[in-house]
């Protein structure tokens, strides 16, 4: 584990919709170079946590720091992979165009993406195994391919920290393998990846850190230390009995 500045530090983060708290007083630290899963039951605030870090959801209180400085100063270090169901895939554009969107932040106003951006997009597509699809209409992609296009778009940002919202949601086995391989490549390159995840069974296999969330932070740390039956019970209530019997926890 690295002792230098954390890649992501969240302090006292509280988010409420109307009067109902969605996230309550969250503290979270993610050292650089880890793969962290965020798990918790439906409505636990997993997506909201990611959106609050990115400033897409207004926090009632709390701070978010990226490498020790406020998020809005460090925005370019953060790549985002939203849920693939959050957009209309019938939008008239192709794969390459979507991936190039990842560079709009760096590109700046009034500049059009050119050769360099196209090359970077192609490079990113190659990393997710979609190099042959760059001219494909996005409406013709399968769910797994859509997910990989979103990953490629985030890769094109060339960020240090990646926040991914359910990248494994409803994807085929090939895509799942491709994503896991990609996550490991990213970690090997010193990037930090934080993933909202649904499948408790695969947490120990895919990730080295885990945060258990249910409105409050139940536990956060290396998988071997905090991914315990007791913590899961605290997170999910009585609904994790099957895990204990499966012997995976």
């Amino acid at each position: 584990m690295q002792t230098q500045t954390n890649a992501l530090t969240i302090t006292d983060l509280t988010v409420a919709y109307k009067d109902k708290p969605v996230l309550w007083d969250i503290d979270l630290e993610a050292p650089a170079g880890i793969l962290m899963a965020i798990v918790g039951p439906n409505g636990a605030g997993k997506t909201t946590l990611i959106k609050a870090v990115l400033g897409l959801v207004k926090a009632a209180a709390g701070q978010v720091q990226i490498y020790g400085r406020a998020y809005h100063e460090q925005r370019k270090l953060v790549g985002y992979v939203p849920q693939r169901g959050s957009v209309d895939w019938d939008f008239p554009t192709d794969v390459q165009d979507v991936v190039m969107m990842g560079q709009y932040g760096q590109l700046g106003w009034l500049k059009r993406p050119g050769k360099a951006e196209k090359a970077m997009a192609q490079d990113a597509l190659e990393k997710v195994g979609m190099a042959a699809f760059s001219q494909r209409q996005i409406s013709q992609l399968s769910g797994g391919q859509q997910q990989r296009v979103f990953l490629a778009r985030a890769l094109a940002q060339n960020a240090q920290i990646y926040l991914m919202d359910e990248p494994f949601q409803g994807v085929d086995a090939t895509t799942e393998k491709a994503i896991v391989a990609l996550l490991q490549t990213l970690r090997a390159a010193g990037k930090t990846v934080i993933v909202v995840h649904h499948d408790l069974q695969t947490v120990p296999e895919y990730f080295d850190w885990v945060t258990l969330l249910n409105v409050r932070r139940i536990a956060s740390g290396p998988v071997s230390e905090v991914f315990t039956e007791e913590n899961l019970r605290l997170t999910y209530g009585g609904r994790v009995a099957f895990l204990a019997t499966n012997g995976n926890v």
Partner: peptide
């Protein structure tokens, strides 16, 4: 025309556009 790529992005994926700082 001047803000074509920005308009395209906010029409396709406004949340992502915001995450880029647009």
């Amino acid at each position: 025309g001047l803000f074509w790529k920005e308009f395209k992005l906010i029409s396709f994926d406004p949340d992502y556009a915001a995450s880029l700082g647009l």
